[in-house]
Write a protein that binds this DNA or RNA. Structure first.
Length: 588
RNA sequence: GCGCUCGUAGCUCAGUUGGAUAGAGCACAGGAUUCCUAAUCCUGGGGUCGCAGGUUCAAAUCCUGCCGGGCGCACCA
C-alpha cells in the first residue's frame, strides 16, 4: 500500500467524522483531495490540499476547515506535528520511527515492495512493435519495443493482468512484394543473374538466404512459373523466416511477447465482415464521396470517388474514413479495426498501442473505431514514440552494412557490447515517449555522471561494494534483509539518511502514478534521483565519519546503516526490473 | 489549409495529472580523496515556463487565439 493513499483514506475518515458531528456540511466530495510529499522539505513530510478543495463546496474558509481537520491528522500514527500553511495546506511532519518502519517494510518485501493491487487484475492489452515482417528490425522500432515492454512490466507491477501483443501485418501489397523479392532471390540462388533489384521490391541482403532455402526445398520448377503458382508459398516462407528473425532481435532486447496476431488470419476468419456487420447494425456505414484534403498538397490523381465509409466523425474524428479500396478489398484500417475488436472480444476493455510518431494521424480514427465497434465499452490509448537520432561522438551515426541504409536493432546492440541490451533499454526511457531523442553511442558507454545507465548501475554496485566490505564487521548471514529488518534503526537520524528513506517510501507511489499515466519513463527518472541521493549520502561519509556505513567499533550502528544500503539496492533492483535492465553488483 | 504533438536556465530535459519561493544534468566558476570504488560528491551564478487573454483560493499544467519546431493529411501499410 502506497503510504500516501493510506493517509488519504485516514483523512477521508476524519472528514466523515466531522460531517457526522455537524462541523462540516453533508455531501462533500473528497475525490479531489490529494496527499503528497511537498516539494519543499521545510513543509514537512506529507501535505494535503483537503481544506482548500472543500472550502468552496462547504462554503467555509480554507483555514477554518484546516483548523478542524488538523487535530485528526495530529492523532494519526506516526504524525509528530501538524501545521497549516500558505493558502490552507495542512502539512504534517512524521516521526523518524515512522520512516524507520517504512525501511523495515522494504526489507521485508524485497523487490516486491512497490507492487500494487491498483489494477485489481483488470485485463489490459499492450500492443507494440508490430513491424511489418518484411525485414529486420531497425532502430526506429527499438524505442517502441522498449517503451511497450517496460509498460507491460510496469502495469503488471501495478496489479494489472497484462497481455503483450504483436500484430503481424502479413496481408496486403507489401507482403506480396516480399514474396516477389523472395522469388527473385530464389532465381538468383538457381544461378540466374538478377542484376539490380527492381524498385518496389525489398533489396536487402537478408533475402538471399531465404531464396537459397526455397531453391533447396522446392527445386527449380517454379523458376518461370506464373506468379499465382508460387506466391502463397513464397510469401508464407518469407514471412515465417523474417518473423523468426524479428523475434530473435526482440529476444536480444529481452523481449518476448505473449501473443502474435496475424492480420491474414483475422481476415480469413471473417473478422472484418464481423466489423462490417457491427457497424452496419449501428448505422455507421454509408456510401459516399470524400472531399479532397484542403490546402497545398491535394494529391495529383485525386478524383471524386464513391466509397464505403465509416462515420468516424460521430466519434471525434475529423472526417469519415474508407473501409474498402476501389478494388473492393478491405483497407488496412478495416483490418486493424478487426484486430482491435478481436482484442475486445478476448476480454480487453483497455487497450494500449505503442506506435511511431509518423502514425500520429491515425490515432483519432482508430480510437473512433474502437469506441464505435465496442459500443463505447472499449478504450484505446495510443503512445506515440518520437524518432531517435543515433549519434556517435556528436555526429550522426550511419551504418549501411546491409542494403537499405538503416541501422538495424541488432547493429545497435552489438555496437554497445556486452551490456548492449541494458543500455538500449535504459536510454530509451530517459525521455518521455513523445519527445525526440538523441542517442549518442559514445555517451552511452561512458562511465560518468553524464550517462544515466552507468550512474544508476554504479549506485547499485556501490551498495554491494559496501556489503562486501562489511564482511569485516558482520557475517554474511547477518546481512540478509530479514536479519537487517530486525536491526535497531534509531541511529538513522541524520537528515540525509532520512531523505533516502523517504525516497524509498516514494517508490510505491511512483509505480502507481507511472502505471496510471502509462508512462514507464518515470521509473528511469526515479532511479536517477534515488541514485543521486545515495551517491550524496555516500560522500557525506567523507566529511562526517558518523555517516559512514561501516563502523568497526559499532556493530549495531553498522547493521542499521546496512539496512539502509540494502533498502537502496533493493529498490534500485526493483526499478531496473521494471525497465528490464539487469542490476549489476560490480562494475569494474 | 486542417489535425496531432512539442515549446521550461546558454544546451539536453524533468515537473508527482491544478498546489506553496518552477527543479535536475551538462556547460561555466570555486571546492572535497591518509578513510566503504573521486567512475563520486559539495557550493555558486543562471528563468517573463513561446506570446496574449480567460477559468479559480491556486495555472508551466485546463480553455481560446496567435507565433515557432516536428509528424501526418482519400483506396499504401
Amino acid at each position: 500500500m502506497n503510504l500516501f493513499r493510506a493517509f488519504q483514506a485516514d483523512i477521508a475518515e476524519i472528514i466523515a467524522d466531522l460531517t457526522k458531528s455537524g462541523d462540516l456540511p453533508e455531501g462533500l466530495d473528497t475525490a479531489n483531495i490529494t496527499v503528497e510529499p511537498p516539494r519543499d522539505p521545510s513543509h514537512g513530510d506529507i501535505s494535503t490540499n483537503a481544506a482548500m478543495v472543500l472550502a468552496k463546496p462547504a462554503g467555509m474558509k480554507p483555514r477554518d476547515i484546516a483548523t478542524l481537520i488538523a487535530p485528526g491528522i495530529e492523532a494519526l500514527d506516526g504524525v509528530e506535528k501538524v501545521d497549516i500553511a500558505g493558502p490552507g495546506f495542512i502539512n504534517a511532519g512524521l516521526s523518524d520511527a515512522f520512516w524507520h518502519k517504512q525501511l523495515v517494510r522494504v526489507l521485508e518485501a524485497g523487490t516486491d515492495y512497490g507492487s500494487s493491487d491498483l489494477g485489481g487484475q483488470e485485463k489490459i492489452n499492450v500492443e507494440y512493435v508490430s513491424a511489418n515482417p518484411t525485414g529486420p528490425l531497425h532502430v526506429a522500432h527499438a524505442r517502441g519495443a522498449v517503451v511497450g515492454d517496460a509498460l507491460v512490466n510496469l502495469l503488471r507491477k501495478a496489479g494489472f493482468d497484462v497481455t503483450s501483443e504483436y500484430y503481424i501485418n502479413d496481408a496486403g501489397n507489401q507482403v506480396d512484394q516480399l514474396a516477389r523479392s523472395a522469388h527473385l532471390r530464389y532465381r538468383e540462388a538457381l544461378g540466374e543473374s538478377i542484376g539490380e533489384v527492381p524498385e518496389g521490391l525489398y533489396p536487402g541482403e537478408y533475402m538471399i538466404p531465404i531464396g537459397k532455402e526455397l531453391a533447396e526445398s522446392l527445386g527449380d520448377g517454379l523458376k518461370d512459373a506464373p506468379e499465382e503458382e508460387w506466391i502463397d508459398t513464397f510469401r508464407n516462407v518469407a514471412i515465417e523466416r523474417l518473423l523468426d528473425q524479428i523475434k530473435d532481435d526482440l529476444a536480444a532486447l529481452g523481449i518476448e511477447q505473449d501473443v502474435f496476431t496475424s492480420e491474414r488470419d483475422l481476415v480469413a476468419a471473417g473478422k472484418v465482415e464481423h466489423v462490417q456487420d457491427l457497424l452496419e447494425a449501428r448505422g455507421l456505414i454509408y456510401r459516399g464521396v470524400l472531399e479532397p484534403p484542403k490546402g497545398k498538397a491535394a494529391p495529383e490523381d485525386w478524383e471524386p470517388r464513391e466509397q464505403t465509409l465509416f462515420k468516424a466523425t460521430d466519434f471525434g474524428d475529423d472526417t469519415d474514413r474508407p473501409l474498402k479500396k476501389s478494388d473492393g478489398s478491405w483497407t488496412y484500417f478495416s483490418n486493424d479495426i478487426a484486430n482491435h475488436l478481436d482484442k475486445f472480444e478476448r476480454g480487453f476493455k483497455t487497450m494500449i498501442d505503442v506506435w511511431g510518431a509518423d502514425h500520429g494521424g491515425y490515432v483519432k480514427r482508430m480510437q473512433a473505431a474502437v469506441k464505435a465497434v465496442t459500443g463505447g465499452e472499449g478504450a484505446l490509448d495510443v503512445k506515440l514514440c518520437q524518432i531517435v537520432h543515433l549519434k556517435k561522438g556528436g555526429e550522426p551515426f550511419r551504418m549501411s552494412k546491409r542494403a537499405g541504409n538503416f541501422v538495424t536493432l541488432r547493429d545497435l546492440i552489438d555496437e554497445l557490447g556486452d551490456n548492449g541490451k541494458d543500455i538500449v533499454r535504459f536510454i530509451m526511457l530517459t525521455r518521455k515517449n513523445d519527445s525526440q531523442m538523441d542517442f549518442d553511442l559514445d555517451k552511452a558507454l561512458e562511465q560518468s555522471r553524464d550517462n544515466p545507465v552507468f550512474y544508476v548501475q554504479y549506485a547499485h554496485a556501490r551498495c554491494h561494494s559496501v556489503l562486501r566490505n562489511a564482511l569485516d564487521v558482520l557475517k554474511e548471514g547477518d546481512m540478509a534483509p530479514e536479519k537487517l529488518a530486525g536491526a535497531d534503526l534509531e541511529v538513522l537520524a541524520d537528515p540525509a539518511e532520512l531523505e533516502v528513506i523517504r525516497m524509498l517510501a516514494n517508490w510505491p507511489k511512483t509505480v502507481e502514478a507511472a502505471a496510471e499515466a502509462h508512462e514507464p519513463h518515470r521509473i528511469a527518472f526515479y532511479l536517477n534521483d534515488l541514485a543521486a541521493l545515495f551517491h550524496g549520502l555516500w560522500n557525506k561519509g567523507k566529511d562526517n565519519v558518523r555517516l559512514r556505513f561501516i563502523d568497526e567499533d559499532d556493530v549495531d550502528a553498522t547493521r542499521a546503516r546496512l539496512a539502509l544500503v540494502v533498502g537502496v539496492a533493493t529498490i534500485i533492483a526493483s526499478g531496473l526490473q521494471v525497465i528490464g535492465v539487469t542490476p549489476l553488483e560490480e562494475l569494474r
